[in-house]
C-alpha cells in the first residue's frame, strides 16, 4: 500500500514533467478540459432560471448532484480511469508484458502507470461548482464532512467501470468503445432520480447502483430519506470487488503479442 502511494506520487510528478515537454499542448488541454466541465452545471442553472427545474429538487440540490458526481468522476479520471487507455494501448502493442514484470499487484501497478494529469483541471472546476452548490444550500460543516467522506462511493464506482473496461480490453483487445458506456453511465446518474420510471429507479438503487453515486447522499441530507438507502452504496463496493476478481482472471487469457 505504501509503495503504491510512493509510486503514485512519483508517477504524478514524472507525468507532469513529461507533459511539460510539450508545454503549449499541456496548458491548452488543461484549460479546455476544465472549461468543458462547467457546461452541465451551467445547463442546470439555466434550466432552473427558465423553468421549475426538476420536481422536488431545488436548484442547489440539482447543482450539487451534477457537480458532486463530476467531482468523483474527475478524481477517478486523474488517478484511476487512465487504465482504460493504457490497457487498450498496451495490449494492442504487446507492451503490457513489461508492466507485468513489476513486483506488485498488476492492477495496482497499472493504476500507478496510468496517472492522467490533464484531468486535474476537471477536479478544480467540479470542486468549485460543488462549493458553490453547497453555498446555495447553506451546508453545515457536518454535511460537508459527510459529503467528503461519501465521495469514496462515486470514485469507487467510476473506477469499477474503468476496471471492467480494462478487463474487457485484455480479453478482446480492441474494445475502445466501452468507454462510451462509462460516459453514458455518468450522464444518466446526473439526473435527479424522479425523472425515471419507478422500475428504473428501483434498478438504480440496487443492481445498477447509479443512484448511490450522487442522488443518495443528497436525498439523505436534504430530503430526509431513510438511511436504508446507504445499502445501495454497499452494492458499489461489492461490484468493485467483483470487477477486481474478474480483472485478475483475465490475465490468464492474456496472450501477449508475438515478437
Amino acid at each position: 500500500m505504501k509503495k503504491w502511494f510512493v509510486l503514485e506520487r512519483f508517477m504524478f510528478s514524472r507525468e507532469v514533467s513529461r507533459r511539460l515537454a510539450y508545454k503549449f499542448d499541456f496548458f491548452f488541454s488543461l484549460f479546455t478540459i476544465s472549461i468543458l466541465q462547467i457546461i452541465i452545471p451551467l445547463y442546470v442553472l439555466l434550466l432552473y432560471g427558465v423553468s421549475d427545474g426538476f420536481p422536488g429538487w431545488s436548484v442547489g440540490q440539482a447543482l450539487l448532484l451534477v457537480s458532486y458526481i463530476s467531482l468523483g468522476e474527475s478524481i477517478s479520471a486523474v488517478f484511476f480511469q487512465g487504465i482504460i487507455w493504457n490497457t487498450v494501448d498496451n495490449v494492442k502493442k504487446g507492451t503490457m508484458d513489461t508492466w507485468l514484470l513489476a513486483p506488485m499487484h498488476p492492477l495496482a501497478y497499472f493504476i500507478n502507470r496510468s496517472v492522467d494529469v490533464e484531468d486535474t483541471g476537471k477536479i478544480v472546476t467540479s470542486a468549485a461548482m460543488t462549493g458553490y452548490a453547497l453555498f446555495l444550500l447553506e451546508a453545515t460543516i457536518l454535511e460537508i464532512a459527510f459529503l467528503l467522506l461519501y465521495l469514496i462511493v462515486p470514485i469507487v464506482f467510476f473506477t469499477t467501470l474503468a476496471i471492467l473496461a480494462s478487463a474487457t480490453s485484455i480479453l478482446f483487445i480492441d474494445s475502445y468503445r466501452i468507454y462510451e458506456f462509462v460516459n453514458l453511465t455518468s450522464f444518466l446518474s446526473k439526473y435527479p432520480l424522479s425523472i425515471y420510471p419507478a422500475l428504473v429507479q428501483t434498478l438504480f438503487f440496487t443492481l445498477v447502483p447509479l443512484a448511490a453515486i450522487g442522488v443518495v447522499p443528497i436525498l439523505l441530507l436534504y430530503q430526509s430519506a431513510s438511511w436504508i438507502l446507504l445499502a445501495s452504496a454497499l452494492v458499489v463496493f461489492v461490484l468493485c470487488a467483483l470487477s477486481i476478481l474478474w480483472w485478475n482472471n483475465t490475465l490468464k487469457n492474456y496472450g501477449s503479442a508475438g515478437g
Binding site: S17, K93, D97, T98
Partner: peptide
C-alpha cells in the same frame, strides 16, 4: 530482470 529487444521499458519522452 528481463529485456525484450522489441518492447521498451523506458519512457519515450523522458
Amino acid at each position: 530482470g528481463a529485456l525484450f529487444g522489441q518492447k521498451s521499458q523506458l519512457w519515450w519522452d523522458l
